[in-house]
Design a binder for these strands. Structure first.
Length: 549
RNA sequence: GCCCCCGUAGCUCAGUCAGGAUAGAGCAGCGGUUUCCUAAACCGCGUGUCGGACGUUCGAGUCGUCUCGGGGGCACCA
């Protein structure tokens, strides 16, 4: 059982025996900002004071007196100013945790609170009409970490990429490709237009198509350009997959929109109609999403008889429901946040429970060269791709930058800063702590210093820096759990940075490998535990944990 | 016009979901630390209208209303 649970239970019992109503207020454990306030605090008495209209300090006093914590868990209980109850962890608990880190290793911090429930995170899902751009890189970083986090706390989580390989845009892409092919072959007629995708990568694709091939496609498809379209889509999709691989992001599945047509799309439509949420106006079938709080009703079938993207998306989510996911998370691009209400409406009509569908919006990424924003225009074909970004700054740096901030907040990505292989670059700070410990263990080995797992007397770790480091290690499972349950990867980067700081401070003040075999062994145990937790954190972030730098 | 996101230190951001203890980091700037396990490190130096106003509260960066500024969305496109 986690220490938080033990403490929560003790506090709940204390509330009971002191005669305070249980469940009236939520049990909250916090990490105090100031060291003097102990390791854990709870404002429970303050919350109760509000409900009971009594003096919070008195309540805190009564709870503190009624509470009995295990001696090997809590060393002291204090009440403070407005009504806080501050707890100090027992050294025995910190030591026990150190042994747990050693024992569980890569699994330290994982849990089973997900209960094996099957869930899915859909992310990136960029249209296969061009290379991935920078905002997709951010989505890739964030989405993959959310999958890692959910798995780590016991969910059966999968990552999926929805491939929109169907519809107008594919046809438009085909037209642009045909233009480039005919351009190369000198077959262009004066009135032909380049179409929606003038960028250079289409020209490159055109180079791989022979005159014979083009002639066959033209004969078969005429103006629809479907063969050009599917050729381009497949080629682009392959580079997308390669680029994601290069970025170290792996999907469990690429789901193609084309396989939804026409059967599942028809089925989805029928469900909306059968449930009475569809009507026809001006020849188009509408979905009354306004009944679920959307701004306006949305078209499902256009008056030309073709399904909209939205209907396809409903069919797609129908498959998610049928594939047995107990909940699904969609990472949406910043320009798609307006789709959330209609998707919630759709999920509801499909019969999903209230919280089945969750949308997370990934914020904008603005690339900066120092203070200057880099202007990008997708139409003009001027943009920096994900590939170019990670070739420029490296995958670890790119990922870390994307994961340092809250998912939905806009991000200025400073290329100048990211390129620097120096202390200005936060990812190296954390990696350096890991490499430094690895180096110390090598040194210890040379000197014959041993980290004896069983017999080491860890009670000698009594310095302030040692204690703080141990406390922080103890909080790791709590941080992972919080990051997973709130879908906030940036908590991991914050945690890693703090842990690195605490280690560097400890390292600076105390020599690890000395003539004192007992002390060396104890400090090595602490250092190695820190390395393990740094590695676990970096692993969740998908960032390398180097043994030397 | 309606809706969503953002507005916290010179810069980039945590903290807002669960209201509480003197609002925190990093970077930039200035000064210091190495006979000793990696100085990609450590230590010291911060007078912030938490965009603004009003409200709820014993208590508001956090909740509510209004407002200002920045971005985005409001297609029978995907």
């Amino acid at each position: 059982m986690r220490f938080q649970e033990i403490i929560e239970r003790s506090l709940t019992r204390a509330l009971e025996s002191a005669g305070f109503p249980e469940g009236e207020v939520k049990m909250i454990l916090e990490k105090p900002r100031l060291k003097e306030h102990g390791d854990i605090c709870t404002p429970i008495a303050l919350s109760l004071a509000k409900v009971l209209k009594r003096n919070p300090l008195e309540i805190a006093e009564l709870i503190a007196r009624a509470a009995s914590f295990p001696d090997d868990m809590v060393a002291s209980v204090e009440i403070a100013k407005p009504g806080y109850i501050n707890l100090k962890l027992a050294h025995a608990a910190l030591v026990r945790n150190l042994r747990d880190v050693d024992k569980y290793g890569d699994d330290y911090g994982s849990s089973d609170i997900g209960g094996g429930r099957k869930c899915q995170v859909e992310y990136v899902s960029a249209n296969p009409t061009g290379p991935l751009v920078v905002v997709s890189a951010r989505a890739a970083a964030v989405g993959s970490v959310i999958v890692n986090l959910l798995r780590n706390v016991g969910f059966d989580a999968e990552g999926e990429y929805y491939v929109n390989d169907y519809g107008n845009q594919i046809e438009a892409l085909g037209k642009s490709l045909r233009f480039r092919v005919r351009e190369r072959l000198g077959l262009l007629e004066s009135e032909e237009e380049i179409g929606a995708y003038p960028a250079g990568y289409v020209t490159e694709l055109a180079a791989g198509i022979s005159a014979e091939q083009a002639a066959r496609w033209d004969e078969r498809d005429g103006e629809s350009c479907t063969s050009y379209g599917s050729y381009a889509t497949e080629a682009i999709l392959r580079t997308i997959e390669e680029d994601l691989e290069f970025f170290g992001v792996r999907f469990d599945n690429f789901f193609r929109e084309s396989c939804l047509h026409p059967a599942l799309v028809a089925e989805a439509l029928k469900i909306v109609e059968d449930k009475g949420f569809a009507y026809t106006r001006e020849g188009a079938v509408h979905f009354e999403t306004t009944r679920f709080g959307d701004e306006k009703d949305r078209v499902l079938v256009k008056s030309d008889g073709n399904p909209t993207y939205f209907l396809g998306d409903i069919a797609y989510h129908l498959t998610k429901l049928r594939r047995g996911y107990e909940w699904v998370i969609d990472l949406l691009g910043p320009d798609h946040h307006g789709h959330i209400p209609r998707m919630k409406a759709a999920a509801s009509v499909l019969g999903a429970h209230e919280r089945w569908f969750e949308a997370l919006v990934v914020g904008w990424v603005r690339l900066m060269e120092g203070k200057k924003p880099i202007s990008m225009s997708k139409r003009a074909g001027e943009f920096i791709t994900m590939r170019e970004l990670i070739e420029d700054v490296g995958t670890d740096v790119a990922k870390y930058f994307f994961l340092m901030r809250r998912t939905n907040s806009p991000l200025d990505f400073d290329l100048q800063l990211a390129r620097k292989q120096s202390d200005e670059n936060p990812v190296f700070y954390v990696q350096y702590a890991h490499a430094r410990i690895a180096s110390v263990t090598r040194f210890a080995e040379e000197k014959g210093a041993v980290r004896d797992r069983k017999d080491t007397d860890l009670s000698v770790l009594s310095a302030a820096e040692e204690r703080e480091l141990m406390v922080h290690l103890m909080f790791y499972p709590y941080v992972v759990e919080g990051a997973a349950l709130s879908r906030e990867p940036h908590r991991l980067t914050s945690y890693a940075k703090e842990l690195a700081t605490l280690f560097h401070q400890f390292y600076h003040k105390h020599r690890i490998v000395t003539d004192d075999a007992q002390l060396s062994s104890a400090r090595l145990t602490l250092a190695v535990a820190t390395m393990q937790v740094l590695r676990n954190t970096l692993c969740l972030l998908g960032v390398d944990a180097p043994k030397s730098m």
